[in-house]
Amino acid sequence: MPQLDVTTFAPQIVWLVITFLAMYFIMAKVALPRIAQVLDERQTRIDDNLEKAAALKKEAEEAAAAYESSLAEARSKAQDEVKAVIDAANAEQAKKQDELAAKLNKELEAAEARIAEAKDKALANIKEVSGEVAKATVEKLSGVSVDDAAVEAAVANAMEQN
């Protein structure tokens, strides 16, 4: 077995040491730093981009939130306005109604006053007319002319009784 030939050990080990040291220095000083640099660069780039994406996402979310809040605000504002308009209309209507009611009341009062006046007048007329009618009736029936004062007293008496 050639592997157990002791005379070949020395050159193998010598060259192993030489080549492996060379390998180690090439790797440690040249090759690995390069790869590490590229990997680091890529990682930072990726991290940067991810951060940027996260920031943009946040911005978008904020914009969406702002949009929503402004939408809600506008909605509530619109509702307020509608309410105000309705309130104003209601108020005006109430006012008009009140006015109308007041006017009607006034007219009612006037009418009532007029009616009362008419009634008084009518009552007065009734007294007169009934006196005359009573006087004429008495004169026609009995042929006696009646004293005006007596008739009046009798009518007043009768009306009292009624």
């Binding site: 991290d47 991810l50 994406a53 996260a54």
Partner: peptide
Amino acid sequence: DTRLKQAQDNS
């Protein structure tokens, strides 16, 4: 959002 999370996890 989910894609971003995935990318972050991957990285």
